[in-house]
């Protein structure tokens, strides 16, 4: 479905992608796992055309996202849904209008049809009945679910999730995890999740990809990753503060640094 090929990207002297190649299979849940600064969010942005990499290609349905003109990109985006980290609902519109927004923009459906569609989508995320509320009246977990309803309202082929469980309590995270898996099964969408939440990742993933400072260090099923002997992968999934991924930023010796200054 989506194939990233020898992707390279740098911001200043920070490398966010160093010859990254990976494949996101159709109708599967793939989780891009990595710490902060690992380049996973940048990769996600580039996969949806919100940013362009320095080199390499990202094939979506046989077309290279990194080389599309704006118009073609917008056409392709109608096949994508995205749940943003902060949900990105329009705070001036109520829940109904938020979810109706893509329908009003891209279809000529009548109000009664739109109403039905919104009911169906809200039911899918378990929130029927909040139509007339404003985003500010909902909890973080609920706005995420509304954001998800909006992301799937045009029946996309691919849904991207940017840190779907960050900032949520364990129950709300569990709900989002369940929704990701459910929607993947029921709608047959390809799901791509960017996350640093290991527990959630192991629960939902068909396949995991681990990024470390712009390098792809592991790729495989949750089982394969769990049993990986690679110390970097082990450190990441056990969450140890020090290891092959260093705790301190500089390799200068501390004592020397203090004394010589």
């Amino acid at each position: 479905m989506i194939r990233v090929e020898s992707l390279n990207n740098k911001f200043g002297h920070i490398t966010t992608a160093n010859d990254v190649s990976c494949h996101f299979e159709e109708k599967k849940v793939t989780v891009l796992l990595g710490g902060s600064g690992s380049g996973k969010s940048t990769l996600l942005k580039q996969m949806v055309g919100l940013g362009r990499p320095d080199s390499g290609s990202i094939m979506f349905d046989g077309r290279d996202i990194t080389k599309l003109a704006r118009k073609e990109l917008y056409e392709l985006r109608k096949k994508m849904g995205m749940l943003f980290q902060g949900s990105a609902l329009f705070n001036s519109l109520n829940i109904y209008e938020n979810i109706a927004f893509p329908l009003r923009e891209h279809t000529n459906l009548s109000d009664s049809v739109i109403k039905t569609i919104i009911k169906i989508k809200l039911e899918m995320v378990g929130l029927r009945g909040v139509e007339n509320m404003m985003p500010s009246q909902l909890s973080g977990g609920m706005t995420k679910r509304v954001g998800l309803a909006r992301a799937i309202v045009l029946d996309p082929k691919v849904v991207f999730y940017d840190e779907p469980t960050s900032g949520l309590d364990p129950i709300a995270s569990g709900v989002i995890d369940k929704l990701i898996v459910d929607l993947n099964k029921k709608l047959g969408v390809t799901s791509i999740v960017v996350s640093h939440d290991i527990d959630s990742a192991f629960r939902i993933a068909d396949k995991l990809i681990i990024l470390f400072y712009g390098n792809l260090i592991a790729e495989g099923t949750p089982e394969e990753i769990k049993n990986s002997p690679d110390p970097k992968v082990r450190q990441f999934i056990t969450g140890s503060p020090d290891g092959p991924i260093p705790f301190t930023l500089t390799d200068k010796d501390f004592i020397e640094d203090i004394l010589i200054d």
């Binding site: 919100l50 995205m82 980290q85 990105a88 891209h106």
Partner: peptide, 14 residues
């Protein structure tokens, strides 16, 4: 800040 601008782009609205 709240990602509403990229959200518009993702919904194919300029």
């Amino acid at each position: 800040i709240t990602d509403q601008v990229p959200a518009l782009e993702m919904m194919a609205v300029e």
